[in-house]
Amino acid sequence: MFVVASIAVLVTMTLALIRAMLGPTVFDRVLALNMFGTKTVLLICVVGFMTERTDFLDLALLYSLMNFIGMVALLRFSQFGNFGHSETEGQS
């Protein structure tokens, strides 16, 4: 049954990749990238269960947080043109 779930996740990732290739604006591509990241987390979980290696879950946890940070950093960069100094100083 894990095979069915992982195939579904892979199909979704393929659809996201199609949108990333077609996407007329850069935001379509970022949206597809975000979805691809979420699906990666799910795929790692499912494959970890399939191979009975539960330490994959730590990787999935890390990946979900990295995905969020990367997404916010990318959008911040596209909006302000740099990675900081646009809000209060001192938030090192």
């Binding site: 049954m1 894990f2 069915v4 779930a5 195939i7 579904a8 996740v9 199909v11 979704t12 990732m13 393929t14 659809l15 996201a16 199609i18 949108r19 077609l22 604006t25 935001f27 379509d28 949206l31 597809a32 975000n34 979805m35 699906k39 799910l42």
Partner: peptide, 28 residues
Amino acid sequence: LIAGSFFSIVGGIGIVRLPEFFSRMHGG
């Protein structure tokens, strides 16, 4: 798992099929 797979593929279809950016976000 089957229901989750179904909804995940539906979202994938939505992100490809919906017409413009702001609607595609609902699919995501």
